[in-house]
Design a binder for these strands. Structure first.
Lengths: 322, 322
DNA sequence: GCGAGTCACAACCATCGGTTGTGTGTGCTT
DNA sequence: AAGCACACACAACCGATGGTTGTGACTCGC
């Protein structure tokens, strides 16, 4: 099915004449006639009754019209979403269920008129994400580089929002019935965080966390998938893990798991946003404003050393660090 | 844009290989390659990165994929809606804001999975609707023929549901502040019902109504449109009209008009459904069941002479009348 | 009856979209 | 390291498609 034929059908139905639709579409009346005829042949129904003054929709045509409008709208949305130059705001997240994606989804639900595409670069190296931002392939990326000095001059990294950690445990775990926990209560309990790449920012984060609160955090080993992790947690009386409060990687209810907020201090992972310094996508401003309006984590708050001073969205990390 | 190309893109993205997508679609690998290439040319972006083991989505491809799926779904829905043989349930109503359409809309909202098309035959003659039902052009029609004996043998008319009347008046009308009214209270008030075709079922209905309750019903004259009617009602201290309680032709609030239910007895217009006697559309059964479950009008109820005995959905009017 | 409008059909032609055959690059195996 | 298996791209070819211009059939209004 040719979407140009569908478009012609819609305009012809609205204008009541093939001739006028043809004028508007910049083709001859005969071309529109053939397009409609080919649509009718493909669908095996009559869409119009031809009269001396134009065309009138048949019942089948009436039934087809809203579907045709829907198809055209879908095509137009698709084109505006990816046509270079005028494409939708495109933001890279680590995963579609990460806290960043959840926050973006919330934003989109309250502002459905903005064209937002949430994509995932299929790489772990943040330098690739930086290159993608620099090249304009994505408009922003929720990633962090450990040393902002390595960023190209036309790319900046700003603080996005803080993601407070929660303990995820199974029903048999000794801490399972707590309403909240303090970091010191986690001492001597085994915390397993699989799938952390060595020397990554997350590895550094958990390293500092373990040191500052004397915790047993096992951040080594491969990740065999969330299902495996959940199964282990559900059965275990001594293994727990840490998740961001907004992350939706896991559905604790399915495995009778509990999410327990950690407070006094709240453990906050600072999420960053990488974007171009010059001429960023106009829609980005609304996103960064939204991030700035997110409710901050409860105080007191612990943060890793590279983010010891609270930061606000829009502030330039690179500049504030020296 | 060719929707077959879009379909190929979706399958290739899902399968990760042009070759397998080609096998599935019954064309050669080269054809799929060309389709993708032409899509890429049209959109002016790269959709896949080609590797030795297949294809991988680029960022643009990732952004396009959900849109492509949406387009394909729209096309498929359009086809199932009108392809002869397997098309959606199609029901003719007098107007998209009539009580019948409102009832169908309610049904569809609670059963969004059924494919339902509500259309309007652009004719007033119920015999045309009967012919459309007989020919299978529509599966059912919310119209009435005054003499069921004239129906073709393979077409039947059943009672659909009763539509209770309400008085629609402007703020200056003497009855404007009533919560409910009885028919006798309408006596001596002028009731204007424009746009009723002479000798139609509605004309007969109002005729009987006027006779039985000694009312002044002016059912003559052309209808200049709802806006005109509403304007007149809003300004007038002595003109009122009657509307079905489920009709949504008018929004009284916009003109500060009041809808006042009429009770003791409730004035019920019996709506009929014309459908084929043999092999009706399988989805029709659910509709007639739904109609049968609608709450009946309050008792006591007045009905025109041709419907003096209460009827239930599914009953065969033709058979019960002799 | 005729002119002005509509849509459809015919003839023509460039382009497109499919085929088969072949080339190129990559990764795994021997 | 060589060779094979596999996947995608390119080339050549060809019928079908979709556009054009020209014309015909039909209806409506004057």
């Amino acid at each position: 099915m040719d979407t140009e034929a569908v478009r012609s059908f819609v305009r012809a139905a609205e204008l009541g004449q093939l001739q006028r639709a043809a004028d508007e579409l910049g083709v001859t009346q005969q071309a529109v006639s053939k397009r409609i005829a080919s649509l009718e042949r493909e669908l095996d129904v009559r869409l119009f009754t031809r009269t001396a003054r134009g065309v009138e929709l048949t019942l089948d045509g009436q039934a087809f019209l809203p579907h045709a409008r829907n198809i055209i709208a879908g095509v137009d949305r698709a084109i505006t979403a990816i046509k270079p130059g005028s494409r939708a705001l495109r933001i890279d997240v680590l995963g579609l269920r990460s806290a960043q994606a959840v926050v973006l989804h919330d934003y989109w639900r309250s502002h459905p008129e903005i064209d937002l595409d949430v994509v995932t670069l299929r790489v772990n190296d943040p330098r690739v994400a930086v290159a993608a931002v620099q090249a304009g392939d994505v408009d922003a990326s929720f990633r962090s580089v450990t040393d902002p000095a390595t960023l190209p001059r036309d790319v900046q990294m700003i603080h996005a929002f803080d993601s407070p950690l929660e303990l995820l445990v199974g029903p048999r775990h000794p801490l399972a019935s707590a309403r909240t926990l303090t970091p010191s209560q986690l001492r001597r309990h085994r915390i397993w965080v699989p799938g952390i790449a060595p020397r990554s920012e997350w590895a550094e984060f958990y390293d500092q966390l373990a040191t500052d609160f004397d915790l047993r955090i096992d951040a080594a080993g491969p990740n065999f998938g969330n299902e495996v992790l959940l199964d282990i947690l559900a059965d275990s009386a001594d293994v727990a893990t840490l998740v961001g409060s907004r992350d939706r990687y896991v559905w604790p209810a399915n495995h009778d798991l509990r999410r327990i907020p950690i407070v006094n201090p709240t453990l906050a992972y600072p999420l960053s946003l990488i974007l171009r310094r010059e001429n960023p996508h106009p829609g980005l401003r609304a996103i960064t404003d939204h991030l700035g309006r997110l409710s901050p984590p409860p105080t007191p708050t612990w943060r890793p050393s590279w983010a010891t001073t609270p930061r606000h969205s829009g502030e330039d990390l690179d500049r504030t660090r020296r």
